[in-house]
Design a protein around this nucleic acid. Structure first.
Length: 941
RNA sequence: GCCCGAGUGGCGGAAUGGCAGACGCGACGGACUCAAAAUCCGUUGUCCGAAAGGGCGUGUGGGUUCGAGUCCCACCUCGGGCACCA
């Protein structure tokens, strides 16, 4: 196949072709590496160069690091990387000390699955994949400080992942101080009697097993026997965040079942309020903030206690003010009190309903008819506010996993309760008088939610009637509940604690052993890292995806030589059994930005001085708002909105509470780049065909002359539409690829890849080259005369605009401005010397290799990576004369060119005097003339 | 249903409330070539017109304004997220 840009045999020898571009690129990549051009100095430690730091503001630019997959990069992957590279290069040229590197998030399922298929150890394939990624990223010319690169799978890295786990394990959440504290301080509180034990006995009276049980209940990382998401198809448990809306695994799309199992949990719920509140500190999009708030799902309301024959039943409600309208109670079918509540005559129907609810699988749950179902238990509870006896039902629209698994049903004020009441003929008393509605609810077609005066809402001791504000009514009801011991204000969250263990092989082992009684013990620092044991059997036990009652079996369980150890943890050598779970893939990505700062430190996960320099609070952020510290710019895909970004914030906050880091948040400014989409084609059998071999004819698409259908999707091997950066670099060079990806559109928008469009940026670079270099000789060839005033003005306008665009990450419009300037030079027949230098410097962040080459041709012997970025001369941004468009009634009818400093009345006179304007006025006397100085004139006739 | 975001030429996209369509692709015409490719030059929103020029144009309908792609209200469509969450 002939490449689209194949030059003729007799082409000029030094034309900027794909071949020449690649030669230039290789040469400069080697030189940057040899010179350590992009190495960023630290204030302390092995990478310290204090002299280089003085007077240079720091900036930390971070990409979400990739999982190094076996198929390598396609052109969609580096979109964000190119953006951060351009920004980093620009910031270096504006005098910043830039932290910019790349690591690899290399634990996880695909490497393990590949290992199972091929018998190769995942470490081998992972290292090969990382090497391939490094090669591909280097070829793009990314200006990483290679010394700082890390892989989460390196024992020197995960030693500290394990250390942080132990910090969390050895902490508890002090609700009064609202922060995590070391577990030893909790033990002190128990020992000194300041904090009572659960059953009130003194600390000394407890056995050591009782003590550890007491303390373990407070730990931020704890073993729990609670409902978890068991995924037989993966052979492991997964976190709530990894379960999709239809009850399947995020990875593999296997069914997931709720089962009680003993697993590691992290008490992220303790941080729920701070994870919400501190979003206000962050420069993130409202969309991502909304997703996090939504996921945490904070609801304010009240817990209300109802009396039943089987004891008190608590419900959570966000509308305590509607308590007078509660005419029945609904329990989740799984609610433990159901058995003792059910009356003998209802036993059969209740048990039948519960069985039916339990067997409901995701397919039934997806059923969109969603008709309410439920059965009565036969029992009644007392509504505390008015003493009325109301029936208790069970229904699957009430979920055991939220609130208390029980609700008070207020049919007039809640649509679900309304539907349920209508279906089963339960009373629907109005408790508010909505505008435009009858008080008789039989005329309603749905519940009423809003501010309206309360009616039928009074007892001897609480009267809401006549109040029209929900907030006020809530407040009064909450007060009444608390005064009478019938309830209290309460907050619930959708967020659950984080299920943290996985029954897989390719992950971080837990630095934990169990004693003979089964109590967990964190290992001391000197026993870290707990290295993932070698084996040739890393296959986890997986099961029939629908086999709900299978049991997890970790690969590490099989390694008896590894699991059984004898250790002295303080009271003599004892036998212990190692924890055989591994951590989830999210663990390594919860703190990697910190390790970049000090990658080789063996004493600490990061040196405090180094951490403070790069991550500490700043005087002002990029937009002038306060900067609470953290990464200055974090670029990545939106798919991590509630997984990585929530977990990493949580870990960072624990580290902050314990004094290990100086910023409250890890990522100050977040920018979500879009995706590159690509056309994929399916034949008549619905099988994907190779996209590169599809031909377009008159808007239809053909593969081997057979018609195929087109769709747009994320690029990928599975839908046969991947284009690799290696292909594009091979045809045009990396600089063209970088420009094309940035010129396609704004960085945060998704856009379709069109290989045929790439040539536009290639032509731009070719023209740029030709304006400065003689294509025949390769020598510098500038115009002999300095730039005229028009060219100078354009240059300075371009400088000013490009700076603004670079600061705002608008690389697409920066490129457009540079092309405009270059097109102007083309018309001049080449570049004057005083334009070539600033132009090359402006191109440098975007197309770094060709800019370096041109810079060298312009006579410079050093890299331009740290050259000052051009600064616009303000005097060149204003012209002597200005052209005004003249509108008549809002339509442009003519143009006038006048002196820039002409006063308003003179501009008005000039406009009215313009022949075209006069013609379109046709003798009508203007009612009003608006002159916007320097902008335009509008004549109202 | 709720919460975000977006609708602009044939395509990707540009426009501090101030000349809509920058820049790129494609298309068309031309140069070079035996020819093609590559490269270069020119034209390119749409309709009427030979041209000059004019009409119409940023999803739809209203509004604010001297002036609206941009602000406000209502609606339509598409994309993303959440969803019997009490």
């Amino acid at each position: 196949m002939t490449s689209a840009n194949t030059p003729p045999d007799d082409a000029p020898k030094f034309r900027y072709t794909g071949a020449l571009a690649q030669e230039i690129e290789r040469r400069w990549q080697d030189r940057w590496e040899a010179d350590g051009t992009f190495e960023a100095p630290n204030p302390a430690g092995p990478l310290a160069e204090p002299a280089k730091i003085a007077d240079r503001p720091k900036i930390f630019v971070l990409d979400m690091f990739p999982y190094p997959s076996g198929t390598g990069l396609h052109v969609g992957h580096p979109l964000g990387f190119i953006g951060t590279d351009i920004y980093s290069r620009y910031k270096r040229m504006t005098g910043h000390n830039v932290m910019y590197t790349m690591g690899f998030d290399a634990f996880g399922l695909p490497a393990e699955q590949y290992a199972v298929q091929t018998g190769q150890h995942p470490a081998i394939t992972t290292n090969a994949n990382i090497a391939n990624y490094r090669r591909q990223l280097r070829r793009l010319g990314l200006s990483h400080d290679a010394r700082r690169s890390v892989s989460t799978t390196d024992p020197g890295y995960y030693r500290w992942t394990q250390w942080i786990f132990l910090q969390i394990f050895n902490s508890w959440y002090d609700c009064e101080a609202d922060k995590a504290r070391p577990i030893d301080e909790l033990i002190d509180e128990f020992a000194s009697g300041r904090r009572p034990t659960d059953d009130g006995r003194s600390w000394n009276a407890l056995s050591s097993a009782e003590r550890s049980t007491t303390v373990d209940a407070y730990r931020l990382a704890y073993v729990s026997d609670a409902p978890v998401n068991w995924c037989p198809g993966l052979g492991t448990v997964v976190a709530n965040e990894e379960v999709t809306a239809d009850g399947r695994s995020d990875r593999g799309n296997f069914p997931v079942f709720k089962r009680n199992m003993r697993q590691w949990m992290m008490r992220i719920t303790a941080y729920a309020d701070r994870l919400i509140a501190d979003l206000d500190l962050l420069d993130w999009s409202d969309a991502i903030k909304a997703m996090q708030r939504n996921w945490i799902g904070r609801s304010e309301g009240a817990t209300v206690h109802f009396q039943s024959t089987a004891g008190p039943i608590s419900v959570f409600t966000t509308r305590p003010d509607t308590l007078f309208g509660a005419t029945f109670m609904v329990l989740a079918p799984e609610h433990p009190i159901v058995d003792s509540l059910t009356t003998p005559d209802r036993k059969q129907v209740v048990s039948q309903y519960r069985h039916q609810a339990a067997s409901k699988k995701d397919i039934d749950r997806q059923d969109d008819t969603r008709e309410k179902t439920g059965v009565a238990t036969g029992s009644y509870v007392i509504n505390p506010v008015n003493g009325e006896s109301i029936p208790v039902w069970i229904a699957d629209y009430v979920l055991m996993g939220y609130g208390t698994g029980a609700i008070m049903a207020v049919p007039s004020g809640d649509q679900r309760d309304f539907e349920f009441a209508r279906l089963y003929g339960l009373p629907i008393p109005a408790i508010q008088r909505p505008p435009d509605r009858e008080l008789d609810t039989s005329t309603w077609d749905g519940a009423y939610v809003g501010d309206a005066p309360y009616v039928n809402s009074a007892s001897d001791s609480l009267d809401l009637n006549g109040i029209s504000g929900v907030a006020e009514a809530k407040r009064l009801t909450n007060e009444w509940l608390e005064r009478n011991g019938r309830g209290e204000a309460a907050v619930t969250y959708k967020l659950r604690d984080w299920l943290f263990s996985r029954q897989r092989y390719w992950g971080e082992p837990f630095p934990v052993v169990y004693d003979l009684d089964g109590n967990p013990h964190g290992l001391p620092d000197e026993l870290l890292p707990v290295v993932l044991p070698e084996t040739d059997s890393f296959s986890p036990q997986t099961f029939d995806p629908d086999d709900e009652f299978s049991n997890p079996e970790s690969p590490l369980d099989r390694l008896e030589w590894w699991t059984n150890v004898e250790l002295d943890l303080g009271d003599g050598a004892q036998p212990y059994r190692r924890d055989t779970n591994v951590m989830p893939q999210w663990a390594g990505s919860c703190w990697y930005e910190l390790r970049y700062l000090d990658p080789t430190n063996e004493q600490r996960f990061v040196d405090p001085e180094v951490e403070k320099y790069w991550m500490g609070p700043q005087e002002a952020g990029h937009n002038g708002r306060p900067h609470p510290g953290g990464v200055d710019l974090y670029v990545g895909g939106v798919e991590h909105a509630v997984l990585h970004l929530l977990y990493a914030r949580f870990w960072h906050k624990v580290l902050y509470d314990l004094g290990h880091v100086s910023s409250k948040e890890p990522y100050y400014r977040l920018f979500n780049q879009g995706y590159i989409l690509a056309a994929a084609y399916k034949d008549s059998r619905e099988i994907y065909v190779e996209a590169t071999e599809v031909e377009e004819r008159d808007g239809s698409y053909f593969y081997n002359d057979q018609p195929v259908t087109r769709e747009w999707g994320k690029m990928g091997k599975s839908i046969k539409n991947a284009v690799t950066p290696d292909d594009i670099c091979g045809s045009y060079g990396a600089d063209t690829l970088r420009l094309y990806e940035m010129a396609m559109g704004p960085l945060d928008a998704s856009r379709p890849w069109e290989t045929r469009d790439v040539v536009g940026m290639y032509r731009f670079l070719q023209r740029l080259w030709r304006n400065i270099v003689d294509e025949e000789t390769g020598d510098l060839a500038l115009l002999p005369t300095p730039a005229d005033i028009e060219t100078k003005r354009l240059l300075h306008r371009t400088i000013s605009g490009v700076r603004d665009d670079m600061d705002a990450l608008r690389f697409n419009t920066a490129i457009a401005k540079l092309i405009e300037l270059n097109n102007h030079l083309t018309k001049l027949g080449g570049s004057p010397a005083d334009v070539a230098e600033p132009l090359v410097l402006m191109v440098a962040p975007l197309a770094a290799h060709v800019a370096e080459e041109l810079w060298a041709k312009l006579g410079h012997s050093t890299s331009l990576a740290h050259e000052p970025f051009p600064v616009a001369d303000p005097g060149m941004l204003v012209a002597d004369t200005v052209e005004y468009p003249v509108q008549v009634n809002g339509k442009v009818r003519g143009h006038i060119t006048v002196a820039a400093d002409l006063d308003v009345s003179a501009v008005e006179a000039a406009a009215l005097a313009d022949p075209k304007v006069a013609a379109s006025l046709a003798g009508v006397t203007p009612k009003k003339v608006i002159v916007i100085p320097g902008r335009m004139v509008n004549i109202v006739a």
